[in-house]
Computed example of a mutant assay.
Amino acid sequence: MENNRGKCILIYEDNQEILILCKTILTRKHYRVETRLRCENVINDIDSVQPDLVLMDLWIPEIGGEKAVSLIKGNPATRDIPVLLFSANADIKEICKRTNANGYLEKPFDLKTFIATIEEYIK
Rank of each mutant, 00 (worst) to 15 (best):
E106T: 15
I18T: 12
A90G: 12
E94F: 11
I9K: 05
T99Y: 01
V83D: 02
D57Q: 02
P51D: 09
D110K: 11
E13S: 09
T35K: 07
C22V: 13
L19N: 14
T99M: 03
I63Q: 06
D14Y: 02
S70F: 10
C8S: 11
I95T: 10
M56V: 05
V83A: 00
T27V: 05
L71P: 04
G103Q: 06
V33A: 10
V49H: 01
L105G: 08
I81V: 03
E106I: 14
K29Q: 15
I115G: 07
K112E: 14
P51G: 05
L71A: 08
G65H: 01
K73I: 01
F109Q: 04
I92H: 13
N75L: 05
N89I: 09
R36L: 14
Y31W: 14
D80N: 14
G103D: 03
K67Y: 05
S87G: 02
V33I: 05
N3S: 13
G74K: 05
T99G: 09
L105D: 00
L111C: 12
L71E: 10
A77G: 13
G64S: 09
K123E: 15
I95G: 01
R98T: 07
K123W: 00
D57E: 15
R98V: 06
A101G: 03
D45R: 09
K112V: 06
D91E: 15
W59T: 15
S87C: 03
D14C: 11
D57F: 07
R98W: 12
R79L: 12
I63R: 11
K73V: 03
I63H: 00
N15Y: 03
N3K: 09
K93P: 05
C8G: 06
V33W: 03
Q50C: 11
N3Y: 10
P108I: 05
D57I: 13
S87R: 10
I115K: 02
R38M: 15
I9H: 07
D45G: 02
D45Y: 01
Q50K: 07
I43V: 14
K93Y: 07
V33M: 09
T27H: 12
A88N: 14
I18C: 04
F114I: 12
E119R: 00
R5P: 01
P61S: 15
I115M: 09
V42K: 05
Y121L: 13
E34V: 11
L26T: 11
A68V: 10
D45C: 10
D91G: 15
I122F: 00
T27M: 13
K93A: 15
E34P: 08
K73R: 11
P82K: 12
K107H: 13
S70R: 15
P61I: 06
N3L: 11
E2I: 10
H30Y: 14
S87W: 02
W59D: 08
H30S: 13
R98G: 07
P61L: 11
I72T: 08
K97M: 14
D91K: 12
I72P: 09
P76V: 13
I18P: 05
K7Q: 10
Y31G: 03
I63W: 03
